[in-house]
Design a protein around this nucleic acid. Structure first.
Lengths: 211, 211
DNA sequence: ACAATTGCTGACTCATTGGTCATTAAGGGC
DNA sequence: GCCCTTAATGACCAATGAGTCAGCAATTGT
């Protein structure tokens, strides 16, 4: 009696394929990835993949969405739920979150989005609506809370909360491009940036002013 | 007498082809660009293109090199030649340079480098040696001059001069990804960043310290 | 046990495209 | 004006890879 050549596992397939695709895209980029490879990684045939995803492009979009949405919503609720001061939040949870990104698979998304974004306008629209604008919104909440509480002065950060995360993107791009040639201590870069920003906007009540 | 079907212009061809390729790569990315398209844009046959460039990849590398090298060396000499104070240089020439990047064709290079870099290790090595490290070096010179002259205090910028340009990269990536969906006033973002950084590191001799 | 259902396979098609090469003709030298 | 060198052409080849489909076999129902 021959071992079964496959099992029918309708429920599990999409997630398995998505996961495999993420890995493949991460290694080779969109164009560099063969649909057949994704299928092999997922342990299924190419035909089956096409049963769950109409085209390679649709698979690509599914990958992006499935990976990015959970992370951003986790970050947002950490912002709204915290009872830390704005400064403490920036030095603590925010910094941890920032540090984790250049090391996590999420960094791959940046590569994919930069490389393929222009070809998929609906994908970038989705990304704006469900990721970027929400993230910026959360950052603004932190800054405004700091101002409300008298921790921070009004500053450019009120208008451009993005300035809090520009080094995150920098770290990600650096690690993608120079990975093999030149290492960068992204943790310390990010810490330094927070220090710099805080030095600029903090209202120091309890510090020696006369130095 | 039939019009000549072509002219022989050995000298001019490489530059023409490189220029055409830059435009094509800018629009479609590396994989999305057909060699035949590049040839048509340049007004030559595909065969001729292969007479000047051995492969598509070699053409790609030639494009990157020809566009990026002049810009970086211009920036470097502006740093060494200036007699402005460090602060004035940052507010003036540096800011102008930064503002120009998200609007110039150079931003395309970022897309190409992020997307294709991992596939071409020798290219990223070249880029590191001849662009990135030189740029960082120039930035560090500015910061150190500021410290030497008593304009700036020692800060994280001494170790990570990159922090001066992270918003430039951010602006470039933003404009690539969200071009059509969401505009960003990159000029003001960059100005704000410089203000923020200066506020953090400036030693204010002539300011009310007792507030 | 048998049939009906349907998840799954993989060989096939067909369009696409990087790269080649035999041929053509422009233009300099005499 | 006529060679002769070589810049330039474009039809062609071989490979590749996205997407299809006819059939097969794991389950489910009875």
């Amino acid at each position: 009696m021959p071992a079964a050549r496959f099992q029918r596992r309708k429920e599990a397939r999409p997630a398995e394929i998505t996961q495999a695709a993420m890995e493949a895209f991460a290694e080779k980029g969109y164009d560099g990835t063969r649909v057949d490879d994704v299928a092999k990684r997922a342990g299924v045939s190419k035909g089956l993949l096409y049963l769950y995803f109409k085209t390679k492009e649709e698979l690509f979009k599914a990958v992006i969405k499935s990976f990015v949405t959970p992370r951003i919503s986790a970050f947002r609720s950490s912002v709204t739920d915290t009872d830390l001061s704005a400064e403490a939040f920036l030095r603590g949870p925010f910094l941890e979150f920032a540090k984790s990104i250049p090391k996590s698979p999420v960094r791959i998304l940046v590569r994919l989005l930069v490389a393929e974004g222009p070809k998929h306008p609906d994908l970038t629209a989705y990304y704006w609506d469900n990721v970027a604008s929400l993230g910026i919104d959360a950052l603004r909440q932190i800054v405004e809370k700091g101002v409300r509480n008298g921790e921070f002065r009004e500053s450019a950060l009120n208008e451009f909360p993005q300035l809090l995360v520009t080094p995150v993107l920098f770290s990600v791009v650096w690690s993608i491009v120079f990975e093999t040639h030149q290492s960068l201590d992204t943790d310390r870069l990010l810490e330094s940036h927070i220090e710099l920003v805080l030095a600029a906007i903090e209202i120091r009540h309890d510090e020696d002013d006369s130095r």
